[in-house]
Amino acid sequence: MVLSERTLRTFRVSRWHVAFALLLATAGFLAVTQIRNAVLIRQQLNVPPDRLQELAFRLRQQERNRAALEEQIFTLRDQLGDYERGVAQDQEKLEDLRRGLERLRILAGLAAMVGPGLVVELDDSPQPLRPGDDPNTVILHYTDLQVVVNDLWASGAEAVAINDERIVSTTGINCVGTTILCNTKRMAPPYRVTAIGDVESMQAALERSDGSLATLRGFGFPVKLARGSRLVVPAYRGSFRFSHATPVELPK
């Protein structure tokens, strides 16, 4: 029994030795694996492993932020598209308004016009005045110009200017001393009336036997009539002022 006791003791001793060996092996293996992983993490991510949770949390937070921002981008893009469509519509409206305005400017005489027409040149009579003669018989009066312009309007003129001064809705042709006032401009002879319109009709109206030109010619005023295919009537350069008049129906 001494032997068996001895073997038992050696067995017992080796048993805890074996247990310790196994568990130490396990622990050593685990420790080395852990250390290697920690080193790996530190090398690859450049952060200590105990900060991983915090960093993961931050990462998730940032990812959420990013998702929110992406959503924002989508909505903003949608809005931008809406705005662009709106702008396009507005631009169409604006284009309509601009065209309307252009038409109104043409109607008001605020746009220079080009086209076929007549040029009538009138000048004072070159006949020398003898004593006792009425000087009015050799001087052109504003009424003569008015008659010519009226004839032109009546026979289809669309744009008329005297000495490059456009005749508009508020234009008056007046006599100021020895000169003629058209719009706000004083004019001296020769007077050059440019009219764009139906050439044949205007010429016929001016040249008729009891027309204005015939009368002027009868009094010996030099009258020149010329046709042009590309006459330019400049735009009205003055201003329109309505201090007393207001439209009956205000435009919306």
């Binding site: 080796s14 030795h17 074996v18 310790f20 060996a21 196994l22 568990l23 130490l24 092996a25 396990t26 622990a27 050593g28 293996f29 685990l30 420790a31 080395v32 694996t33 290697r36």
Partner: peptide, 15 residues
């Protein structure tokens, strides 16, 4: 010697 050997074996296995 056995536990120390076990520890060394574990470390070796880990590597």
């Amino acid at each position: 010697w056995l536990p120390i050997a076990g520890l060394l074996v574990g470390i070796l296995l880990g590597f």
